[in-house]
Amino acid sequence: MTEHIVSSYDDDLKEISDGVINMGDEVLGALNNIETLLKNNDHELAKKIIKNDLIINDLGQSVENKVFNILASRQPMAIDLRIVFSAVKISLYLERCGDMCKGISNRVLKGDLNEAQSPETISLLVNMCSMVHSNLGIVMEDYSKKECDNSVKVWKSDSEIDSLYSEILMDILNSIKTNPDATDALVPLLFIARYLERVGDQATNVAEETYFVVTGEDLEGLEKTEVENETTF
């Protein structure tokens, strides 16, 4: 796309996109730390993640303010309107991701990992975190390049994270069945898995928005049938 006649309009739009990209970087950093946190039960790192959530929130607020101003001053149309509208939605999704990371950190600070003593389950959680991190990284990379091919792949592959979530769920429930005394220690891990699964959902939401920015089409409407067909026997 060529530049606007009014060059400051390009600057304003870039500031909004950059704000979203910065939020994405912060959330990816938080997910990276969550992976380490789960491996090492590092309480100092948990505190750092909680503190960094404020930065994510501030970045989200800044994106919102810029969107507010550009709507009032430029009345964007077509691709510009899609960029602006999607920036608001993506920043909300990323803010929620930050909240999930904060939630996991809070659970760790409460001592959930001390009690759990379930290295297999924690290992699965680490894998899940890695997958979620990878998916969000891919869609944010697409967003920054205004591309969407890889976002579509991520959108279609979210079921892998859901499957892993189900596997962790079954793993924990089986452990509880065989050792009911460990119930209090294991249940909190369910919450951590749930948080990660929701971050995975937000990654697919970002994929949908990126697809909308690039194509002007609704990914859910266009692709759902195709995905359903693929998974129907």
Binding site: M1, E3, H4, I5, V6, Y9, P76, M77, A78, I79
Partner: peptide, 11 residues
């Protein structure tokens, strides 16, 4: 061309 015009990119 329509997109360029409605977004103010038409030079």
């Amino acid at each position: 061309q329509t997109e360029a015009y409605v977004t103010g990119r038409y030079g």
